[in-house]
Design a protein around this nucleic acid. Structure first.
Lengths: 340, 340
DNA sequence: TTGTATGCGTTATCAG
DNA sequence: CTGATAACGCATACAA
């Protein structure tokens, strides 16, 4: 059987390839009769135009690139799942590339994407100002990320304020001594740092204990041992915190297993709250209280941003859905409210 | 500035585009001098041939497709990271598509991949015989999966035997009452089922307690509540098992948090062992004993299989690396060996 | 060893 | 409204 291409369809429909093309792209009017005939044969032979030929003939690539960090967490995974879903819905394919954090390696990844004719890519890495400038100078491909203005995620403010409110809530429950585990980021001004800012602001505002020993910091790709030293720094026997905030659910889960293994009860002795709202957070026992991110909104908003970078058309998102929701579950309780 | 295409490079190198093409593809000998000149200008202008044009001119697509289940776990994520790495090393890009388990949706995903000129794709879903036949009949794209013979993973046997050996090991430690949580699969003969077979064989062989209440089954996309009923079925107060096997690390982590929350100690009261060897398994407290899969080998072997499907060239893998290793960590102990 | 010319499947321009 | 045809960037058969 012959290859099913535009020529084949044209012959079977008794018209020229130009007409078939017009039917496919709705680029120029075609008489109803002919239109129907063409559509029918396309259906009949299950014809699909070759994207490669389309691209060569001047069309855009319909392919988005995604650069993933090697230290991916479940939140990022979930985000990507939605990104994939929305990209598909808009007719775009997703080409993915894992990458270590070295700048050279990121450039290599960009090069690969560029070769494949991709024009817009999303990176889970937050680039520094210099990196961003370098890329703009040397690449045709447009790179965006969580903090790019086109994404309209308002992510810094949302992170700061949701943590602030969470800590205030704990204070209102009666917690006066709240520990916090945060992420050190290479970027001066990332949304991860914003979480710490929100925490500190609430501590000050609510006049909670401000001891330095209540705060721990670890890197994004921390070792288990360094997390444990942070926990041990915070959990000093005579002066335990009654609550603990962790910058991510995964860290919280590690911490909770440590706490329970060491004979403390959650939430009777310590309440735990974290950030992200990954599905796993409600599966463990006790279920983890967490600030759940609007992943679906974020994904939609990012894809809209990428489409904008691709074709210049703005697609507004409903800002109201951009809500960070504190999910109170079993890991949070009232201090001093249980028998010893 | 003109577009940097093969014509541009040809002009700058003072030769024809045919020669440039030959240098790029090493398809025919080119004199050393000319070769060098061409290579230099390619470098100088950072020229990259258009994959679309190459494809159109008869070359293969250099793109692999991957169909991911929506209920992805960390093991699958890790596997995909390595798949991505090895595919990149071989000059292939990875286009990814998440998908629910409905057959229609899988077909839609395949269609999308096929349109993009992809010839080989890997699916995390295990297709039934009928599904496989249907796809072969209706699609040009070749679909492979964990149990495809071309992948040479020997996965059924490896799963069965590694679980068998693990349970024997526990028996030798003195465990006589071992619980097991397994996955119900729609496929009659999947590697997930093989894990249960290995368990049952060992129980029989070592003459361990065979009560039906020691065994629980859940679906791949189980709810938390159904896991908890399974746990409660196994953890009957007067006749606790001294050890528990879980078919995946993620299930084990959920189970462990339940166990600790309910006042049992790990491993003093119950030992826990599971399957996969995801990084998170050693991060929790106590660290989780698990049968770690040779993810890196598997990924390499899968990519080799996909390359074989693409170009017919066999690339042998070192079978010795296909080893499932029981990692004994803190979650395993000797029964009756601790003070109450 | 090198160059010329054709074709790959599509879109877009220009005539009819 | 429709059809012929020139691009698009590359590989390759054929000619030199």
């Amino acid at each position: 059987m012959a290859n099913i291409d535009i020529k084949f369809i044209a012959k079977k429909s008794g018209c020229s390839i130009a007409t078939v093309s017009r039917v496919i792209n709705r680029s120029k009017p075609v008489s109803e009769k002919l239109q129907k005939r063409v559509v029918d044969t396309i259906r009949k032979y299950n014809y699909n135009p070759s994207v490669h030929a389309q691209y060569l003939a001047g069309k855009k690539s319909k392919l988005f690139g995604f650069i993933m960090t090697n230290y991916i967490n479940q939140y990022q995974l979930l985000l990507f799942r939605y990104l994939n879903e929305f990209a598909c819905k808009m007719g775009y394919g997703c080409i993915i590339r894992y990458c270590n954090s070295g700048f050279e390696e990121k450039l290599e990844a960009l090069r690969e994407l560029e070769i494949r004719g991709i024009e817009v890519c999303f990176s889970l890495f937050l680039p520094s100002r210099e990196e961003e400038a370098y890329i703009k100078e040397h690449f045709r491909i447009k790179v965006c990320h969580m903090q790019s203005p086109e994404m309209r995620l308002n992510i810094m403010e949302k992170n700061e304020s949701s943590v602030y409110e969470t800590i205030c809530y704990l204070a209102q429950l009666g917690h006066r001594r709240i520990g916090g585990i945060f992420c050190i980021d290479e970027m001066d001004d990332s949304f991860l740092i914003a979480r710490k800012r929100g925490f500190l602001r609430a501590v000050k505002q609510m006049q909670l204990d401000q001891e330095e020993s209540l705060i721990g910091q670890i890197h994004g790709d921390y070792e288990k041992s360094s997390l444990i030293s942070v926990i041990e720094k915070i959990f000093v026997p005579q002066k335990l915190p009654t609550a603990l905030f962790c910058f991510s659910d995964e860290v919280a889960i590690e911490v909770m297993s440590w706490i329970m293994k060491h004979g403390y009860r959650i939430p009777e002795d310590v309440s735990v709250v974290s950030f992200d709202g990954i599905p796993f957070s409600e599966r463990i026992t006790p279920s983890l209280s967490t600030i759940s991110q609007p992943v679906e909104y974020q994904a939609k908003s990012i894809i809209n941003g990428m489409l904008y970078l691709q074709d210049g058309v703005e697609r507004p998102c409903d800002e109201k859905e951009n809500e960070y929701l504190l999910q109170i579950r079993d890991s949070v309780g009232i201090p001093g409210h249980y028998e010893k």
